[in-house]
Simulated scan of single mutants.
Amino acid sequence: MKTNNLKPVKTLTFVTLLLGLIAFCQESDKSKPTSYTIAYSAKESGNVEIYQRNTEGKSTTESTNEKGGYLAWSPDGKHIAFYYKYDDKKTWSIHTMNSDGTNRKRLTYEKNKWDNSPTWSPDGRKIVFSREYKDSEKNWQQEIWIMNSDGSELSQIKSLKGGGPYFTPDGRIVFHSEFKDKKSEISIADIDGNNIIQLTNNEAEEWHPEVSPDGKQIAFMSDRDGNYEVYVMNIDGSNQNRLTNNDVGDWYPSWSPDGSQLIFSSLRDGEKSIYIMNKDGAEVRKIISNASSPAWLKIIL
């Protein structure tokens, strides 16, 4: 009888110890700093750099020894797309390379055209980019083009006039409309260019939309209040809020993998550097000096 009565006690003790061990492991995981990866262009060298930072602020930097700007990670984090200038900066071309700087490939070759702002589709199979140039009548044109990630099957999305394209998680494209009379707006459309919906409506330049990882918000830059600042809005254009407030420009916001923070470029300390802030604009601090065009890898490492 005594032996049988001990069985429930032993079971209860084992369960209690197991639950305690699980709680300890969870608490230990919380205490570990989370590492994130940022790609950017170094101001002094012009090279594309890979920057690793964690919640404690520790970091390492590795140069890929490749020059270029406006960086975009592939969804699996293995490749980077960017543009590079040729012909005395008259021709801009889209390139890809491995994240360690190897296997560089030039994907576009159109002379006297500015191919820029590449972005990857959610499945990594397509790259969309902006093409800008002056036509035969010297009028400035802004077009959006799409191709396979190896550069094949290049074609224009003819109904989309503008630049800065960025994919939503469900495969739509946000972009800024063609720049006219110092005005451009943020819009969203299907990948084939149908169902265009204008999200902003201001007498301002509004550029570089980037969609949050959960697809619910868009961060973008606008000079609606006098100079470029970082704003955020819902994916349907509602609830537009200004996050930064400076006498100098703040540009190119990029979401953290968990959507809780944003990084951006700024001249606020007299040099072009990269800053980080919470998604509500709080706790702004500089993390990388002499750098621009930050792109945050959306994979939590």
Rank of each mutant, 00 (worst) to 15 (best):
D150P: 04
T200Q: 04
V211D: 00
G249I: 14
I188T: 02
S254R: 03
S266P: 02
W207L: 12
F14N: 01
I274R: 05
N227W: 05
L267W: 15
T16I: 02
K158E: 13
R53A: 11
I197N: 09
N194V: 05
I80G: 03
T244K: 07
R106P: 01
D236V: 11
G69A: 11
G162N: 12
N201C: 05
S117G: 00
P294G: 04
D170E: 14
N234Y: 02
I127A: 11
D76V: 07
Y86H: 12
S99Q: 10
K216P: 00
T96D: 02
V230T: 12
A42L: 10
V174G: 08
T108I: 00
I38D: 11
D225H: 11
S93M: 07
D190G: 03
Y252R: 10
L71S: 04
Y40E: 12
E49M: 14
G68E: 01
S222K: 02
S121F: 03
G68T: 10
N98C: 07
G163S: 11
K105L: 11
Y36F: 05
E27I: 13
K182S: 14
I197A: 03
E206Y: 12
Q156Y: 00
R131G: 00
N116K: 10
K89F: 12
E205R: 13
K30M: 10
G162M: 14
V284A: 02
R242F: 00
I300V: 15
R125I: 02
K158P: 01
Y133E: 02
G171E: 00
Y86Q: 11
I127S: 14
D135V: 05
W207N: 12
W92D: 06
Y275I: 09
D223R: 07
N5H: 06
P118A: 02
A81N: 04
D258S: 05
Y231R: 09
V15A: 13
T119E: 01
Y275P: 09
I191H: 04
S256K: 09
N290C: 06
G249P: 07
T168L: 06
T13L: 10
L71A: 01
T60M: 07
G171C: 10
L17K: 04
W145I: 01
D123H: 09
N47G: 01
L199D: 06
K105N: 15
I288E: 06
I288D: 05
D214T: 02
F179H: 09
K161D: 07
N5P: 04
P8I: 04
R285N: 12
G249N: 13
G164C: 08
E185D: 15
P257R: 05
G162V: 09
K85C: 03
D190I: 07
